[in-house]
Design a protein around this nucleic acid. Sequence first.
DNA 1: GTTTTAGGTTGCAACTTACTACTTAATTCA
DNA 2: TGAATTAAGTAGTAAGTTGCAACCTAAAAC
Lengths: 163, 163
Amino acid sequence: MGMLKEDLAELAECGLPAALEAIGERWSFLILRGAFNGLHHFEEFQSTLGIARNILANRLGKLVQHGILARTPLPDDRRKIEYRLTEKGAELLPTMLALRQWGERWETGCISNPVLVDERDSQPIAKIAIHAHDGRELGLHDLRWMHAEDIKEIGTSRLRAVA
Amino acid sequence: MGMLKEDLAELAECGLPAALEAIGERWSFLILRGAFNGLHHFEEFQSTLGIARNILANRLGKLVQHGILARTPLPDDRRKIEYRLTEKGAELLPTMLALRQWGERWETGCISNPVLVDERDSQPIAKIAIHAHDGRELGLHDLRWMHAEDIKEIGTSRLRAVA
DNA sequence: GTTTTAGGTTGCAACTTACTACTTAATTCA
DNA sequence: TGAATTAAGTAGTAAGTTGCAACCTAAAAC
């Protein structure tokens, strides 16, 4: 994969540091995984993850501040607080899956429950991968770094995916 | 997305904690991003990222231990150590991109340099997304968690993607 | 053979995390 | 209604991690 040795300063501005600021602390990612798997309450997170209560309170608070989780007291039992993924939080799913798949492939060596499946046919999802704008899957050698300014728009078959 | 309220114990065994053990510490991810963008030497990482030298040494050491970076003294100047991504490390690229894209979409609000493009047509890659085994893109509502044991193999059109 | 460079290590202060016990408010139970 | 329980969170303190600056070592350059 060709790299640009220049523009290293620009690295500091990319989306990664911002993302890590929001979810890069110890436990944040595991809390999110819990949320994706159906945990919604303080005590559920605490007993499932075994995290210290003050750290959990702190992390939940930060995730809420960042708009990743929504905090709602339930109307029928106002002691109970429900933490639920917002759209912003839910959009971390591809990241989570990619990291989990990597861990399964290179660290644990085995696929673990529960498995995410396509609702239509109950078959496991494909491995998270890099695709061209037209849908072709790209390997590491099909890729290059480029300056945004140098990219020429061409007749885009089905762009819109780039966000 | 349907969740299973059971098997929370199993969460502890999934690939995520293992992955986080390897790259979940502060700075590790940014060091990797540097490696993806062409950094190879201690002083390059240090001056580009502004990380403390002892922390950098510690993190590089852990990444090497985990087989994510390879450490090679250069033959023509044996003071110089080259850190280079292994295959295992390079396979973190989808995770990195997914997280970076999320950060750009939800935190910084803008796309930043350098951009990863398809070498064939120099167009930016598609957004990292979740796909069915047959290649259809899946939204959050097309997904369900399931026990691996309950999944029936069916005539797999082009499986092999599941890892 | 002195100086410079690359890649570290060391010591210490500041910050973060973890463990345990306590608090507060809403709900249930007797 | 009043006592016990539960959900969520706070407080105190010990242990671990991070960050800064100065120092070290071996190879290369002058």
